[in-house]
Design a protein around this nucleic acid. Structure first.
Length: 175
DNA sequence: CCCTGATTCGC
DNA sequence: GCGAATCAGG
């Protein structure tokens, strides 16, 4: 695979949005993260503005869910995440993660659930240490995997190992 | 161990 | 120019 104008353009865009080299590589397909980094350097766009150090591990966020008035449904959820808190595009991404978390809470209302936020990994980014819980509908373009740390070496993280998978289409309106 | 970007250097 | 291997680091 070679660097067509199209691919270079997408590389620039994704890099500017703050995605990591491996994420970009997975999205472009056909290239390794090294290839991406190499290209980034050759294009001389390494300095990504103010790239806050990545790898924010276990960042806690307290949020009040505005939905789910019904009894039993937790209205306050503490979420744990390894999600990166970078500059620009990251804010929007975090909101997406939150949306996922809320959906999960609704589908399985229980008190004081610690909801892991999706790292939105592509299939090729999964390893033995990443949660393989599918997020979204497999038929949709934004389908991805949880990607958080797996608990006791299982295929899913501690949260998802307690759930049974259902396609997103069946998950909707549990209320 | 997981991951990150940076650099080198043979191709 | 390309990218695998390697390095340094969180």
């Amino acid at each position: 695979m070679n660097w067509t104008d199209e691919r270079v353009e997408q590389l620039k865009k994704l890099w500017a949005e703050g995605l990591s080299a491996s994420q970009i590589a997975a999205q472009l397909g056909g290239v390794s993260r090294n290839a991406v980094i190499g290209k980034v350097h050759r294009l001389k766009l390494s300095g990504r503005g103010k790239t806050t150090s990545t790898q924010t591990r276990s960042k806690k966020v307290n949020t009040t869910a505005s939905s789910g008035h019904r009894s039993g449904v937790a209205t306050s959820v503490q979420m744990t995440s390894r999600v990166v808190t970078k500059s620009v595009g990251a804010t929007a991404l975090q909101q997406e993660y939150f949306a996922d978390a809320v959906t999960q809470t609704v589908m399985k209302p229980s008190t004081d659930v610690v909801v892991p936020i999706s790292r939105r990994l592509e299939l090729v980014q999964l390893s033995e240490r990443t949660c393989k819980w599918p997020m979204g509908d497999p038929l949709q373009p934004d389908f991805h995997f949880c990607g958080n740390d797996v608990g006791e070496g299982g295929p899913y993280c501690t949260y998802h190992s307690r759930l049974a998978y259902q396609p997103a289409s069946d998950r909707r309106r549990v209320r």
